[in-house]
């Protein structure tokens, strides 16, 4: 049995719900650490960064699912909704820590969103993902139709790209980490444009599919 087959067989028995359990558990645990002074002397900034980074990491993970299936036949599609929703959960937490604990006032929040481009695009990414989070359920897929739903969920692409740029834009100097994330996001988006030749038996010679 190939590795891909083994993973695909395992995913048939491994449910997706532990992703929520671990995700929300981790979110709460980090908050608890902040509350108890275990995230350093500036827990607000620490939480903001930790939640934001986890959101980006999970969003990148959702981008991996399709190319992984295309290029290796490993199918993790079953987990993508949980990864995406959990990413949105951390993004929401990131936003709430920033708005409620960091800025603490509606006027500051609106001024920052309007006046600071890196916050504008981070907020735009958040807003773009709201309809996707709301429609991440089977009922919505039925209501929108598979095609319409897929079209709507292409919004993840600009949203994740904006998120990665937001990270690059907010740092000082040229640390490697945010550029690695931006590079990964660009690569994962670009690989979707690469035509994959299916085996001749399943497609006419020269036919290009994704």
């Amino acid at each position: 049995m190939t590795l891909a087959q083994r993973i695909n067989r395992a995913q048939r028995v491994l449910p997706a719900w532990p992703i929520y359990l671990i995700g929300f558990g981790w979110m709460g645990w980090l908050f608890w650490l902040g509350l108890n002074g275990d995230l350093g002397p500036e827990p607000i900034n620490a939480l903001e960064r930790r939640y934001g980074l986890l959101a980006l990491q999970l969003l990148v993970a959702t981008l991996v699912v399709t190319p992984l299936r295309t290029w290796t036949n490993i199918s993790l599609l079953k987990y993508r909704r949980a990864l995406g929703l959990m990413a949105f959960g951390f993004l929401m937490a990131h936003f709430l820590v920033w708005a409620l604990l960091d800025l603490q006032s509606l006027s500051r929040i609106s001024v920052e969103i309007v006046r600071r481009p890196y916050i504008t695009i981070g907020f735009a990414a958040f807003v773009l993902l709201i309809p996707l989070a709301v429609t991440s359920n089977n009922a919505s897929i039925r209501r929108l139709g598979a095609l319409g739903w897929r079209k709507l969920h292409k919004l993840t692409y600009p949203a994740i790209l904006l998120g990665a740029v937001h990270f690059v834009w907010l740092v000082k100097g040229y640390p490697l980490e945010p550029f690695l994330y931006l590079g990964a996001v660009i690569a994962l988006l670009a690989i979707r444009l690469v035509p994959k030749r299916r085996p001749a038996a399943r497609a006419p010679a020269g036919a290009v599919t994704r």
Binding site: G34, G37, L101
Partner: peptide, 10 residues
């Protein structure tokens, strides 16, 4: 924000 005020520092 003054460092050291915790999670709910003003």
């Amino acid at each position: 924000r003054r460092i050291g005020g915790g999670l709910f520092s003003r």
